[in-house]
């Protein structure tokens, strides 16, 4: 259970599924003063134009979707965008307790950048049928959308798409890799 740097200022807990939550609590305790969310995810607004309401800076706010990255051979290379991923248990699409703060931070960022839209991408691990996983990924994307809406983000700003198990971040046949791939990824556009 070692927090490893990922992307630009991002941190991810790499451990097996059972220990993951325990690890998170430990990290939370260690970073209690600064807040749990900032220690396990990217700082919202990293990249050009953080905090800027409008103007030139905002043209760099967006990030490419996973399929566009995959087409260029860049998927998993660390280009994560201003919003943080959330993760799911096997064959589940309910928001995990530890992702509550991640989604709140994502919602805050979206509130601070009202001219942006977000596409929530649902992804799955390699296990199971391709088609069932596309439907499962759609459920995962919808779960995040519904949560963001309850946090006050206009539904018209949020679209969803599922890539099932087709666009994994890693391809090892391990629980660590599967856990990393079972995710919602957030793609910001203007």
């Amino acid at each position: 259970m070692i927090p490893v740097p990922r992307g630009r200022g991002g941190w991810e807990i790499r451990t097996n599924g059972v220990l993951r939550f325990a690890a998170l609590i430990l990290v939370c305790a260690a970073f209690a003063a600064s807040g749990c969310s900032s220690s396990v995810k990217k700082t919202p607004g990293l990249g050009a134009g953080a905090g800027a309401g409008a103007g030139m800076g905002e043209s760099n706010l967006g990030n490419k979707g996973s399929l566009a990255q995959f087409k260029k051979g860049e998927l998993g290379a660390g280009e994560g965008g201003p919003l943080s991923d959330i993760h799911f248990a096997f064959n589940q699409y309910t928001i995990e307790p530890q992702d509550d703060s991640v989604l709140k931070a994502n919602a805050q960022w979206l509130e601070a950048h009202p001219n942006t839209n977000v596409q929530v991408e649902g992804h799955c691990d390699e296990r199971g049928s391709e088609e069932y996983n596309i439907a499962l990924g759609a459920k995962r994307a919808q779960s995040a959308k519904d949560y963001l809406v309850t946090l006050g983000i206009a539904p018209s700003r949020i679209s969803t798409i599922s890539y099932g198990k087709e666009l994994p971040l890693c391809t090892e046949h391990t629980e660590e890799c599967w856990a990393r791939n079972r995710r919602d990824h957030f793609v910001v556009s203007q």
């Binding site: 439907a135 459920k139 798409i161």
Partner: peptide, 25 residues
């Protein structure tokens, strides 16, 4: 909604499509 998958009938006249809307397929 969005297409998730589909099947075509043996005679080619019908398509059974799995379509996702609001998370439900």
């Amino acid at each position: 909604g969005k297409m998730v998958g589909g099947a075509i009938s043996p005679d080619g006249h019908l398509i059974a499509a799995a379509i996702e809307h609001a998370g439900a397929t």
